[in-house]
């Protein structure tokens, strides 16, 4: 309990220091909002097939980027070392950092979703499933961003490494192209992409339909990915945080 309380102090400080800055909030919202608008203007009848994917993409880019920026910035400024000197475990630090990064991703995605619901009358058939998708996706992406960022010192290094997996999975995770339309060789890769499962949960929440027969499949897969990412992030912190 003590360590959880300390993790929440870390999260609150991160929100205060980084995530609540107006430029960051608009940065996280501007690109997906403009993209969504462009798709809607082009063909209003098809926007609903893309909307869950755009929300998932907002989570992916927002959370991996922000987690990576915060970690590399703190490594360079020495404040991460200050945290490592405190009586908190590596897992506590990871938890604190993930909660704040995920909160940022959930907040920006929620604003985007509210905009779509209010302005474009986007439906919301299963809100609880949508929320689970948002939370699990945000946490998994934040952890992936941290696992990579803790190994490097420069933001551009972290971004380069992140782009190695972010852009490819964007095209195989059902964001722009339905999973049915993927070539046979790409489907197994899509199944190990956390973005696929996040987008399908969001899609189920919005439309009540998904590529999977039941939302429990992506929920279980994401839960597994979240656990593995959590363990990997703890190990990465232990090995690389003070280098």
């Amino acid at each position: 309990m003590i360590q959880i309380a300390r993790a929440l102090f870390i999260s609150r400080k991160d929100v205060e220091s980084y995530y609540s800055k107006p430029p960051l909030v608009t940065w996280g919202l501007l690109f997906p909002a403009v993209l969504m608008l462009a798709i809607y203007v082009k063909n209003p009848s098809t926007y609903l097939t893309v909307a869950p994917g755009i929300i998932g993409m907002t989570l992916l880019f927002g959370n991996t980027s922000m987690a990576a920026i915060v970690i590399t910035w703190e490594k360079r400024s020495g404040t991460l070392q200050r945290l490592l000197l405190a009586p908190v475990s590596h897992q506590t630090i990871v938890l604190g950092k993930v909660v704040s990064a995920a909160a940022y991703g959930v907040a920006t995605s929620t604003v985007l979703t509210l905009g779509l619901v209010v302005l474009l009358k986007m439906p919301m058939v299963h809100l609880p499933v949508f929320i689970v998708g948002l939370l699990a996706g945000a946490a998994t992406f934040a952890l992936l961003g941290m696992i990579i960022a803790v190994r490097v010192r420069e933001v551009f290094e972290a971004m380069t490494l992140l782009n190695f997996f972010r852009f490819p999975i964007l095209f195989i995770s059902g964001v722009f192209m339905p999973l049915d339309a993927l070539p046979a060789w790409a489907r197994p890769i899509a199944m190990v992409s956390p973005l696929t499962h996040t987008v399908e949960l969001l899609r189920f929440g919005v439309t009540g339909q998904s590529w999977f027969p039941t939302p429990w499949i992506p929920i279980l897969v994401l839960a597994t990915m979240l656990t593995v990412s959590w363990l990997l992030a703890g190990t990465a912190f232990r090995r690389h945080a003070n280098r």
Binding site: I2, R6, S17, R82, L83
Partner: peptide, 27 residues
């Protein structure tokens, strides 16, 4: 307590908030 060669507190936080935050981490 460790005083490193380069001061490494949180630049965005005030003096009071920096100390309060560390007080929170130390329980």
């Amino acid at each position: 307590g460790v005083v490193p060669e380069e001061s490494n507190l949180y630049p965005e936080l005030t003096c009071r908030r920096n100390l309060e935050y560390l007080g929170q981490l130390y329980g």
